[in-house]
Amino acid sequence: MINNPKVTHEIHATPPGDLAIWVFIFAELLAFGVFFVAYAFARANNVELFNESQQHLNRTSGAINTLVLITSSYFMVRAVAAIKQGLSKPCALWIASAIGLGFVFLAIKIAEFQATFAAGISLSTNTFYMFYLSLTLFHFMHVILGMVILAAIMLKALRGGYSAENHIGVETGASYWHMVDLLWIILFPLVYVIR
């Protein structure tokens, strides 16, 4: 079913979803990319400080959150597959599950932030924490934005606003959500693990 030739052709012709979201995704990746490069530069000048501070991060919650986001991303793949067969209800359900996992991510992250702030750590503590907090908070806000976008699409899907022929909206939201996932997949090893 998924290998419907028409669908395959469409995927190869242009990136999935609205082209405008790709301009946005490109901009976002660029902003994060520059931040990642800046992180690498700052770390190169401060290896010891970065390694020492990194010890205090909660790698377990970071790892769980990686799984949560990847699973959530997979749910969006299923949502797109469902709508391509014209199944609005299952599509909405898959999106709802993806959003649900988004909440799980946020909850775990909030717990992590709470512990960090309780330890008296702020953006001005040191360069490592500046990056850690900036990058994760910045990403955190992207998760929220992604969930808002997904919620809007879910509601439209529930109202039967998409169909097998017209599902660009779902693909657009999925593309954005995959970007949020992708950013975390880079961010987690970079900030939490690599030393």
């Binding site: 012709a13 979803g17 609205d18 082209l19 405008a20 979201i21 806000m141 934005l145 976008i149 657009t172």
Partner: peptide, 21 residues
Amino acid sequence: MSETFTKAMARNIFYGGAVFF
């Protein structure tokens, strides 16, 4: 190709992006 690049989406990104940042 241009049908998959809609003005409505561009507008939403403008408003959404502005508020977000």
